[in-house]
Computed example of a mutant assay.
Amino acid sequence: MSLTLSVDGERWRAHLRSVAETHPGLVPVLKGNGYGFTVGRLARKSGWLGVDTVAVGTYDELPHVATRFDGDLLVLTPWRPFGAALEVDPALARRVVHTVGRTHDLADLLEAQPDARFVLERLTSMQRHGLSARDLWATGRMLQDHPGVRLEGIALHLPLAQGSHLGEVDRLMNDVVAAELPTHTVYVSHLTDAELEQLRASYADYEIRPRIGTSLWLGARDALRVTATVLDVHEVERGDSFGYRSRTAPKSGHLLVVSGGTAHGIGLEAPTGDQGLRARAATLARGGLDAVGFVRSPFSIDGKQRLFAEPPHMQASMLFLPSGTRVPEVGEQVDVRVRYTATAFDRVVIS
């Protein structure tokens, strides 16, 4: 009756151990929907891995993680002098590591909490958050007036672009060294294993700590399977009406009602980063199918993705199977192709 994520526990755990063993200083990233697993479950699994720090996306996620993981909690969203950043439970203050990306925010943070722990984020080609080289140097001078500050490190959040990041990282590290900051720890995101190895070799006096999310939790895709339950089956003839909007069947066949709808993220598509000709052609093709009432669903039966009969409902979807295709039984499980970071599962079953 559910949209279920089934996990081959032995294979998944072996992958997690492998990543932890080959990435010294690992900081697992837990954020959003926890890559489909929930942040609470990943917090417990991080403790099992033996790491000392995890990264959460926002301050609002702290309560979901803090009771399930005993170590430090690095917040990736930059600290601001308003909102949830000012509402952290005092009991957690000693464990929370803030991210600072503006010089005046650092001044406000130290005024509000002189013993605050924090990392300084250096602006990268992502152009999202962070200090410029000039700001980083100014911050270094500012910290000289606060000898007791608890600067935990520098953060570099790099893009997912193809090609090597080493040229950019080298320029950024030159800024870090020149700023003469009271830290020799650098947190990095989205570097390959080869790039991490080279970075450690080039800056042997720095501790390089990789923050890893997707390739840690979702790296063993063959250990993950998403299924939906067939809830009902109805035979229809051409012209029969069905659904919320009384659509008519284009030809004879069967309607399948399966678990999984918009409340789970089914049928909701995030913008794609692929700008190639093939991706654009696929977008146009989907638009054409939508215009005539046929949209391919993420549900697969006998290895073939089936069409939505109408837009997905909140917790279920209706599929159309033309005559001549095998009709699943009520209660049968069918495979679903999903984007894990945008899907809320009813059940997560780890063997």
Rank of each mutant, 00 (worst) to 15 (best):
L5Y: 05
R13Y: 01
V19L: 12
G25P: 00
V65D: 14
L73S: 11
V75Q: 12
P78T: 08
W79M: 03
P81M: 11
A84Q: 15
A85L: 14
L86W: 08
V96G: 14
R102T: 09
H104P: 07
Q113P: 00
D115T: 08
A116H: 07
R117A: 15
F118P: 00
L120F: 10
E121P: 09
Q127P: 04
H129Y: 06
R134H: 12
D135W: 05
W137V: 09
R141Q: 10
V149Q: 11
I154C: 04
L158G: 15
L160D: 15
A161T: 15
G163I: 04
G167S: 07
E168W: 05
V169F: 01
D170K: 00
M173V: 04
V177A: 14
S189G: 07
R200A: 14
E235T: 06
E235A: 07
G239K: 13
D240N: 15
S259I: 01
I266M: 00
L268P: 10
R278G: 06
A279M: 01
T283M: 03
A285K: 05
R286P: 02
S300R: 04
P312G: 00
Q315T: 06
A316C: 08
S317G: 07
L321E: 02
E332N: 05
V336I: 01
R337C: 03
R337S: 06
R339I: 11
A344Q: 01
V349D: 02
I350A: 00
